[in-house]
Computed example of a mutant assay.
Amino acid sequence: MPERPLIGEYDIYYEKYIGLVSEGNVIERLKEQILVSVNLLDTLTETQANHKYAPDKWSIKQVFGHLADTERIMSYRLLRIARGDATPLAGYDDEAYVKSASFATHSIQQLQADYLAVRHATISLCNGMEESAWLREGIANSSRVTARALAYIIAGHEIHHLNIIQERYLK
């Protein structure tokens, strides 16, 4: 399984996510996160899930929609880079994605099913990779990144947002 990526394998912006991932097998961390996120969603009412802690912030539904969208993009990058595709990959505007998605109209169950589908696809991709693929690098959003860094970014990004939910939504 891939070791923690080294500085230089990713844009320094992502250090805040990679640093949140505990030691050990990143694929196991991705699997463990499923239980945490599903349990969180199972405890929420629709009203709680639509709550915003400030007018210009996302609701919990929007956060989970954002997690799924971002994981799709990062997993796609991981696939392309792990398979040796050297084509530079574009960035994306997460605010525009959330604004266009109307996650508030989705039920908690729909968001949960979408999250699970994306996460299971990411885990399946990672489980099928050979060791050498984890070290392949490419360009995404104008920055160099390795496949293993992307797996850690996916895991850390979720931890980051779950921490925000705990600190600002569920006090």
Rank of each mutant, 00 (worst) to 15 (best):
V38E: 14
L40N: 08
L40A: 05
L41K: 09
D42G: 05
L44V: 04
L44R: 10
T45S: 15
Q48A: 08
H51M: 14
K52G: 00
A54I: 00
A54W: 01
D56S: 13
D56Q: 12
D56T: 08
K57M: 09
K57R: 11
K57H: 06
S59H: 02
I60P: 01
I60E: 00
K61M: 08
K61R: 06
K61V: 01
K61F: 05
Q62K: 03
V63H: 03
V63N: 02
V63K: 04
V63Y: 04
F64K: 00
G65P: 10
H66N: 04
H66W: 02
H66S: 06
L67C: 08
D69K: 13
T70P: 11
T70H: 05
R72L: 03
R72S: 11
M74I: 13
Y76W: 14
L78H: 13
L79A: 13
R80Y: 12
I81T: 03
I81V: 09
R83Q: 15
R83I: 05
G84S: 05
G84M: 09
D85H: 13
T87S: 12
L89T: 01
A90R: 15
G91W: 10
D94T: 12
A96M: 09
A96R: 09
K99R: 15
S100P: 00
A101I: 07
A101F: 10
A101Y: 11
A101R: 10
A101D: 10
H106C: 07
H106N: 13
Q109A: 14
Q112M: 07
A113R: 12
D114I: 01
D114Y: 00
Y115T: 08
Y115A: 00
L116P: 07
V118A: 08
R119A: 04
R119T: 06
H120T: 10
A121L: 11
A121W: 04
T122K: 07
T122M: 10
T122S: 14
T122H: 09
I123A: 04
I123D: 01
I123H: 04
S124N: 15
C126P: 02
N127I: 00
N127W: 02
G128C: 06
G128S: 11
G128L: 06
G128Q: 14
M129I: 13
E130H: 14
E131G: 00
S132Q: 15
S132C: 11
A133T: 09
W134N: 06
W134H: 14
W134G: 06
L135K: 15
R136D: 01
R136G: 10
R136V: 02
G138A: 11
A140T: 10
A140P: 02
A140M: 09
A140V: 07
